[in-house]
C-alpha cells in the first residue's frame, strides 16, 4: 500500500488526496464525505425527482401550445381522467399485461430455468440460457417491428404457419382486430422477455446448496417433488422481486405498443403510456397528459412500496 501513497494526485471527482492532508474535525470530515454522492444526488434530484413533482403542477393546468396560453384548471384534468373510457381500457390492458407477464415471465421462466438446471449439461445450459436471452438484448423497436410483420395478414408468417397446420380459419389481422391486438402485443413481449427472467432464475437456482437435492433424492423425492419443496422455496425472494418488477414494468409499457399499433384500432390496445403520449404530444393536451402521468405514478409507486416492504420483510425473516 505504501507504493500507492506515493502516486500522483488522482483525477477522480471524489479525489481526496489534497483534503486528506488537511486537519479536519470529524464532523467536517463526515460532511466532506458528501462529495462522493453529490453528483448522484444532484442528477437524480434534478432529472428524476423534480420533473415528477413538476408533473403534478402541470396536471392542474390546461395550455394551448399555439398561443402559449396556460390556464389553471385545478382538478379538472383529474375529473376528465375519471370519466375517460380510454383510460379505463388502458388500465385493463396494463393489467392484462401484468397478469400474463407474471404467468410467462415469472412462473414460466421459473419452470424453464428448473428444467435447464435439471437436465442440461453445463455447456448446454450456457447455450440455452444465451439463446433464450437473445430477444431481450434486442431493442423492442426491432422486435416490435418484426412481430408487426409476423402478424401481418399477407406477408406475415404466423397466418402462413396456421394455414400450413390446417388452422387457416384461425388466421386474422392480429393487430387490426380490436379483440386480439393487445394480446398479440403481449405475446411478443413474452417472447422477448422470458429469456431474461430465465437467466436470473438459473442464477438463483445455482445458489441453492446441492446437498439439499442429494438429501431429497435419498429420501426418494422425484424431480417434481424437488421442484416444489426445494427449488421454489429457495428462490422465493427472487420470485417475489420478479413479480413486483414485472408489475411495475407492465404499467410503464410503451415502446412495443407504439411501434405495433400506436394504441389502435379504436384505442383497443391503448395503454397508459401511449395514451399519455397521444394526449400530450399529438393532441397537445399537456395538462391532461400530466394527469395520466400522475395515475401511472400512483400505480408504479404502489408497486415500488410493495417491493420495499417485501424485501424488508424478507430481510427481517432471514
Amino acid at each position: 500500500m505504501a507504493r500507492t501513497l506515493s502516486l500522483p494526485i488522482d483525477g477522480a471527482a471524489g479525489n481526496g488526496s489534497v483534503l486528506s492532508g488537511l486537519r479536519l474535525s470529524p464532523a467536517a470530515r463526515r460532511f466532506l464525505a458528501w462529495r462522493w454522492v453529490a453528483l448522484a444526488v444532484l442528477i437524480v434530484g434534478w432529472f428524476v425527482y423534480y420533473p415528477i413533482f413538476d408533473n403534478f403542477r402541470v396536471s392542474m393546468t390546461s395550455s394551448d401550445i399555439f398561443t402559449g396560453e396556460v390556464r389553471n384548471v385545478g382538478l379538472e384534468n383529474y375529473r376528465r381522467l375519471a370519466e375517460d373510457p380510454v383510460v379505463l381500457g388502458a388500465l385493463a390492458n396494463n393489467l392484462a399485461y401484468a397478469v400474463l407477464s407474471i404467468v410467462f415471465q415469472v412462473f414460466g421462466a421459473f419452470v424453464l430455468a428448473s428444467i435447464i438446471e435439471d437436465i442440461a449439461t453445463r455447456r448446454m445450459r450456457n447455450i440455452w440460457r444465451a439463446v433464450y436471452f437473445i430477444p431481450s438484448a434486442i431493442s423492442t423497436t426491432v422486435t416490435g417491428l418484426l412481430f408487426y410483420f409476423i402478424y401481418q395478414p399477407d406477408i406475415g408468417i404466423l397466418d402462413g404457419l396456421l394455414t400450413a397446420l390446417g388452422l387457416g380459419h384461425w388466421s386474422r389481422a392480429w393487430l387490426g382486430d380490436a379483440s386480439t391486438a393487445i394480446y398479440a402485443i403481449i405475446a411478443m413481449s413474452q417472447w422477448q422477455g422470458f429469456g431474461y427472467s430465465t437467466l436470473l432464475f438459473t442464477i438463483a437456482i445455482q445458489k441453492i446448496p446441492r446437498d439439499l437435492y442429494d438429501a431429497a433424492r435419498m429420501d426418494g423425492a422425484g424431480p417434481l417433488r424437488q421442484l416444489w419443496s426445494i427449488t421454489l422455496p429457495m428462490t422465493r425472494e427472487m420470485t417475489g422481486m420478479m413479480i413486483i418488477v414485472t408489475i411495475t414494468g407492465a404499467f410503464q409499457v410503451f415502446n412495443e405498443v407504439m411501434v405495433m399499433t400506436a394504441g389502435g384500432p379504436n384505442n383497443s390496445s391503448q395503454v397508459l403510456g401511449t395514451w399519455l403520449y397521444q394526449m400530450g404530444f399529438s393532441q397537445n393536451e399537456m395538462g391532461y397528459a400530466a394527469a395520466i402521468g400522475s395515475l401511472i405514478f400512483a400505480v408504479t409507486m404502489a408497486c415500488g412500496l410493495a417491493q420495499l416492504w417485501y424485501t424488508r420483510r424478507r430481510r427481517v425473516a432471514a
Binding site: 395478414p153 399477407d154 406477408i155 389481422a173 392480429w174 393487430l175 387490426g176 384500432p265
Partner: peptide
C-alpha cells in the same frame, strides 16, 4: 375490401398491393 382485417393493414401495404 378485405373486411374488418383492414385495421391491421398499413396503407403502405395497400398501395403495394
Amino acid at each position: 375490401t378485405a373486411g374488418p382485417d383492414v385495421n391491421g393493414i398499413s396503407y403502405q401495404t395497400a398501395i403495394q398491393q
